[in-house]
Write a protein that binds this DNA or RNA. Structure first.
Lengths: 156, 156
DNA sequence: TATGGTGAGTTTGGATTTCCTACTCACCGG
DNA sequence: CCGGTGAGTAGGAAATCCAAACTCACCATA
């Protein structure tokens, strides 16, 4: 019989196993902002130094960041996003927009991103095929691994 | 003087404070799939029951889930996403796509989402104003709170 | 009416992580 | 030589996590 104990196989879970630990996505935020030095990260994130060191190692190992020296003698390092890391930035933007909408009063947004088009960035997740915004009602899930089910959302 | 110890104020951090704990986003995944009952969640996520109970309380308190009885006598409950919860689904989709691209070989995707347009969902984060995909090079950050800086990403 | 089963948790006690403070080590500037 | 900065390590207390067992209410059946 199939495994009845294992959790559902899923790329969301896999992704979170890499970047879902505390501070990891904040590290990515800072690194994408161009603040990739250890002490900057400590200050801007508010993480304990040892935890930060652990996270950085992990993110480098995972191929999300690179560590490069910006100065030999004295050796000084800087972390930067890889391509894979940069491709997580839209996730951060979407999450930030969600936070701005649901966690704050009015338009007290601590940070505004400007898009190259000249407007303030308001990220929208769309379907590549048809271009429409992704809405829950328009989605249907199909597990590719047998044994895993999705109940259609019983109508509200 | 300004606080030199506090971390950067940021909606990403605030959002993660709510949904960034282990399992929280997986709970949301299951609930969006329509699997909102406690034992389903335990099985599909693989979380310890006590942790799950804690997360559920937190997500309900935060207004991301609701708890509703689908049966009185015997009392049986089901968790469902609120509007705010549903609006996090695009984040999950984007994260899943990232995981599919970077964490898996070939097209071994454990789960495929079908969009109402008839195609397999490939989520793209776009700028609402101009419709273009969001790319790192096209963004410029502006902290709204003084004292916080962003270094322009020194050219690769 | 005893027997077993399900759903939805709570309890318990031990294994991991995280957190905080302090410390190191290398180098630089005066 | 002295103090300061960047990039971490070290050590122990505090918080979390985990698995398994337990509870409690109810239903099914025999």
């Amino acid at each position: 019989m199939a495994a009845t104990k294992d959790p559902r196989p899923c790329s969301i879970a896999d992704a979170l196993a890499l970047v879902g630990e505390k501070y990891s996505l904040l590290v990515l935020r800072e690194v994408c902002l161009g603040n990739g030095r250890f002490d900057q990260l400590v200050r801007n994130i508010g993480a304990p130094r040892d935890i930060l060191a652990t996270r950085l190692r992990r993110l480098v190992d995972a191929g999300i960041l690179t560590k490069r020296a910006y100065s030999e003698r004295p050796q000084r390092f800087e972390y930067r996003p890889t391509q894979a890391g940069l491709e997580l930035e839209p996730v951060l933007m979407t999450l930030m927009a969600w936070g701005d909408r649901h966690l704050r009063k009015d338009d007290d947004r601590p940070m505004v991103i400007e898009h190259v088009c000249g407007n303030e960035l308001a990220p929208v997740v769309t379907c590549r095929a048809c271009g429409d915004p992704v809405r829950h009602e328009d989605l249907a899930a199909h597990p590719q691994v047998s044994g895993w089910t999705v109940s259609g959302p019983s109508a509200a």
